[in-house]
C-alpha cells in the first residue's frame, strides 16, 4: 500500500482482509472504514464468520490474517499484541464473557485500567482511588458493588455478565467498541443494559461496531450504516433501512448471490 495519508477522523480502516481459522478461510477480501462518531452494524446469517471478524480485530490467538491491512488510529493494528490494541482503545463486548475463578472483578479491573493509564503516560490509581471510581460507575450503571467483589463472571447470570461487560467499557472508555452478539439467543434485558452503556459512551470521537444476526438489537442502538456480511465479506451496505429489509426478507437474497 505504501505511504497513505489517513484523515484524522478515520478510526478504523480494513483493506482487503483475508483471515483463516483452523486452516479454513473465513474472511475474504473484507473492506470497511469506520470514522469517529459513527455506528456501524454488520449483519449476516448464522455461521457466516461474523465473530471471526471481531476476534481478528482484537487479536485472538488462532485467528490468522493471511493478507490485507488494518489501520487503527493510523497505526498498523496487526502488529500490535492483544493488550496494546486494548490500551489503544479497542474494546470487544464479548458474546460469551469468560469466567475467571479466583480473580475478583475489582482487582481485574484495577489491573486493566492501570495498564491503560500507564500506557497513556497517566499516573496509576491506587486502591482507594480506584474503588472510589468503581463505586461511582457501579452506581450509575445500577450494579450492586458487592457483585464486583466476586470472581470475574463466575456464577453470573447472562444478564449480569453483560452488565459487567458494559461496566468495564465505561471504566476503560474505548475509542472503538465492538459489540458481538453474532448468534446468541438475545436476552432483551441484557441487551438493554449493554445498549444503554454503549449509547452513553458514544460521542463524536468514538465509534461503535455492532455484529449481530438479529435486527432487534438495532432498535436499541441506531446504526448509521448497515452492512450485510456473507461469504467472508460485505455484500451490501446501506443505512438503517437495510436492517428492516433484512428483517422482512431474511438473508436468502444475499447468500444466493454467492
Amino acid at each position: 500500500m505504501g505511504e497513505q495519508k489517513i484523515m484524522s477522523n478515520v478510526l478504523l480502516k480494513i483493506e482487503n482482509l483475508c483471515a483463516k481459522v483452523a486452516g479454513k478461510e473465513i474472511i475474504k477480501n473484507f473492506n470497511l472504514t469506520i470514522n469517529e462518531g459513527e455506528v456501524h452494524a454488520i449483519m449476516g446469517p448464522n455461521g457466516a464468520g461474523k465473530s471471526t471478524l471481531s476476534y481478528v480485530l482484537t487479536g485472538k490467538p488462532g485467528y490468522e490474517v493471511t493478507s490485507g491491512n488494518i489501520l487503527f488510529k493510523g497505526r498498523d493494528l496487526l502488529k500490535m499484541p492483544v493488550e496494546e490494541r486494548a490500551r489503544e482503545g479497542l474494546f470487544l463486548i464479548m458474546q460469551y464473557p469468560v469466567e475467571i475463578p479466583g480473580v475478583p472483578v475489582t482487582s481485574f479491573l484495577k489491573h486493566a485500567l492501570n495498564a491503560k493509564r500507564q500506557y497513556n503516560g497517566e499516573p496509576e490509581l491506587d486502591t482507594m482511588e480506584f474503588i472510589k471510581l468503581l463505586k461511582e460507575v457501579a452506581k450509575e450503571s445500577g450494579i450492586d458493588f458487592e457483585m464486583l467483589k466476586r470472581p470475574v463472571n463466575v456464577g453470573f447470570s447472562g444478564g449480569e455478565k453483560k452488565r459487567l461487560e458494559a461496566l468495564q467499557m465505561t471504566i476503560l472508555k474505548p475509542s472503538l467498541a465492538i459489540l458481538d452478539e453474532a448468534d446468541s439467543g438475545l436476552d432483551i434485558d441484557a441487551i438493554k443494559v449493554v445498549s444503554k452503556g454503549v449509547n452513553d459512551l458514544m460521542n463524536e470521537h468514538r465509534a461503535l461496531l455492532i455484529i449481530t444476526h438479529y435486527q432487534k438489537l438495532l432498535t436499541y442502538i441506531k446504526p448509521d450504516f448497515v452492512h450485510v456480511f456473507a461469504d467472508g465479506h460485505i455484500v451490501k451496505s446501506g443505512n438503517s433501512s437495510l436492517s428492516e429489509e433484512i428483517e422482512q426478507n431474511g438473508y436468502a437474497a444475499y447468500t444466493k448471490e454467492q
Binding site: 492483544v82 486494548a86 470487544l92 464473557p97 475467571i100 481485574f108 489491573h111 486493566a112 468495564q168
Partner: peptide, 13 residues
C-alpha cells in the same frame, strides 16, 4: 480463553 480475555482488557501477557 481466560488469558485472551484479560489481555483484551489491556492487561499485559
Amino acid at each position: 480463553n481466560q488469558l485472551f480475555y484479560m489481555r483484551s482488557r489491556g492487561i499485559g501477557e
